[in-house]
């Protein structure tokens, strides 16, 4: 009886005393554990967030590298004309500084690393321009949209010759000196003609956008858009000139000194303006009016100042028959120059 009383009263009393304490303890412990868990979750959450951030950055970098890989692969797949040595370069900046009056870009190669004045610059899409000024390891490229740019070209299908002239920033290119009776069509590809040796033959430059005839002019008005995206240049390919073979039939090209370039109209063939270092730099020139003239050494004033002596003096005679593929080197010509350090 006493045992039962003790069980029912004493035990219940103790239980009644202890239970709230235990409940409180459990609550405190549980809260503490929850708090600790929360702290862990928060820390884990932070760690996971950091991981996500890092992975996102890595994905971004990887996608950027992938895009770069695609571009570089495209550049590598571009087969350079025989004898011309391809060199990759990065575009460091576009027009930089108050004196960058011309359409230009700065690249990561200079004359010590293959980018002498006059070196053709292209991407896998087409011609970009030519090296205008060169330092030891950095060079400025004159883009083909500059009004002073002159490139001797041929239309791909009809083989109509002309001079491709820039019209300014973000503008179309004008193909000048196309005779009224010459055939040229909208959508036709325009290639370098290779005359004067400034560019290898057959490199795509632009696509014809419009053709119109005027009663007041002897020539058609032809506009073309550049194939290369000049607003988004990142990597470019330089084509180092092939070495001239001793004994090869040569024509005297206009010589260029360090202070004055060769003006328009001194080139050969279809009147390509400019010499080796100023082929597309014959600013404001009228090179095409002297079409089919033999080249002369007469320096003309309308030319940008080249930075240094270009590497070409004599040049092999260009092939008479036009061709789409890059011009092959003369017999016995070595495939390329040894790499310069």
């Amino acid at each position: 009886m006493l045992d039962r009383l003790a069980e029912h009263a004493g035990l219940e009393f103790v239980g009644a005393i202890l239970k709230p304490g235990v409940w409180a303890r459990d609550q405190v412990v549980s809260s503490w554990n929850n708090y600790l868990d929360l702290v862990g979750v928060r820390e884990e959450n932070e760690a996971l967030r950091e991981q996500v951030r890092t992975l996102s950055q890595q994905v971004q970098v990887a996608s950027e590298e992938r895009a770069e890989l695609v571009r570089l692969r495209a550049l590598l797949e571009l087969e350079p004309p025989e004898g011309w040595r391809p060199l990759g370069a990065r575009v460091v900046a576009n027009r930089l500084g108050p004196q960058a009056a011309l359409e230009s870009a700065i690249i990561s190669r200079g004359y010590y690393s293959g980018a002498g004045p006059g070196t053709p610059v292209l991407t896998h899409e087409g011609v970009v321009g030519r090296v205008y000024r060169a330092g030891p390891y950095t060079a400025t490229v004159l883009l083909l949209t500059d009004p002073g740019s002159r490139i001797a070209v041929l239309s791909a299908a009809n083989r109509t010759a002309g001079i491709l002239v820039g019209t300014g920033p973000r503008g179309l290119l004008e193909m000048k000196y196309v005779p009224q009776n010459a055939r040229i069509e909208v959508g036709e590809l325009v290639l370098t003609s290779g005359l004067e040796g400034a560019f290898p033959k057959g490199v795509p430059v632009a696509r014809v956008e419009s053709v119109s005839q005027s009663d007041l002019s002897l020539f058609q008005t032809v506009y073309a858009s550049p194939l290369a995206d000049l607003e988004a240049l990142e990597e470019v390919l330089l084509l180092e000139r092939p070495p001239v073979q001793p004994g090869a039939q040569t024509l005297p090209l206009p010589s260029v000194n360090a202070t004055q370039g060769v003006g328009p109209g001194t080139g050969q063939g279809s009147g390509q303006g400019g010499g080796a270092s100023s082929g597309q730099g014959g600013h404001g020139g009228n090179g095409g009016h002297r079409a089919q003239q033999a080249p002369s050494n007469q320096p003309a004033p309308r030319a940008p100042r080249p930075q240094a002596q270009p590497q070409v003096t004599p040049q092999t005679v260009p092939q008479a028959a036009p061709q789409m593929v890059p011009q092959s080197a003369p017999a016995g010509q070595q495939p390329g120059q040894p790499p310069r350090q």
Partner: peptide
């Protein structure tokens, strides 16, 4: 040197400026 070096004009205009 910086401005003239990065430019595309002959040396002188920055000096004048």
């Amino acid at each position: 040197l910086v401005q003239e070096g990065t430019g595309t004009l002959a040396f002188g205009s920055t000096a004048l400026w």
